[in-house]
């Protein structure tokens, strides 16, 4: 049941990869990553409310969303959509607006591979402007690593919060 995700981040490189597999056909996984109503159900960290301000998931489009916590803190994220090729590829940029200066942008490649048995492997590959930016991205996990919160939300999901 638990998703086994491979994360690789070679030391001293500007890139990182996140490779999960899902027990669902590629078209469905693609829909989950591109449909804003589905995206808000899994992408935002549990203690944040994810609000989508703009979501134009087409080649040449763009997106912006906010993660807000209960203390009134809000963090913005935005990017441009370079290419959306159904159902196999999404290429986009990603920037966290909470950094002291802008420009620390990640170029994200997402490739969906159909596996036997209606399974799908997703290869997410990000390239950042510097090794320090890459390492900073890895450290962002620290802030979101609030596992109790996640566990609580996981329970809600398993108890049919989703339609």
């Amino acid at each position: 049941m638990a998703n086994k995700t491979i994360v690789t981040a070679p030391e001293g490189k500007q890139e990182l990869s996140i490779i999960p597999e899902f027990d669902a056909p590629r078209e469905l996984v693609f829909k989950a990553f591109t449909d804003p109503e589905i995206v808000v159900k899994f992408l935002g960290p549990a203690r944040f409310t994810m609000t989508i301000e703009k979501w134009d998931m087409r080649t040449g489009g763009s997106y912006r969303y906010l993660n807000s916590d209960s203390n009134g803190n809000s963090f913005g994220f935005h990017g441009s959509i370079h290419e959306v090729l159904y159902p196999e590829r999404i290429i986009q940029t990603f920037e966290f607006e909470g950094l002291p200066e802008s420009g620390h942008v990640s170029l994200d490649f997402m490739r969906l591979e159909a596996l036997p048995g209606n399974r799908t492997k997703v290869v997410m590959h990000s390239i950042l402007p510097s090794v320090a930016d890459r390492d900073g991205m890895l450290m962002s996990g620290m802030e979101s690593g609030m596992n109790e919160g996640f566990e609580r939300l996981d329970k809600l999901f398993s108890q049919n919060l989703v339609r």
């Binding site: 049941m1 638990a2 998703n3 086994k4 995700t5 994360v7 981040a9 996140i18 999960p20 899902f22 027990d23 669902a24 469905l28 996984v29 829909k31 989950a32 589905i38 159900k41 899994f42 992408l43 960290p45 549990a46 390492d135 991205m137 890895l138 450290m139 962002s140 996990g141 620290m142 979101s144 690593g145 596992n147 996640f150 939300l153 996981d154 999901f157 398993s158 049919n160 989703v162 339609r163």
Partner: peptide, 24 residues
């Protein structure tokens, strides 16, 4: 720090697993 990052994504994907299951 790689471990919490991996955990963060794994938690997201576990939620996605459930969403996909419902969609199916």
């Amino acid at each position: 720090w790689l471990e919490p990052f991996r955990q963060m994504w794994e938690d997201r994907f576990n939620r996605l697993d459930r969403v996909l299951h419902k969609m199916k």
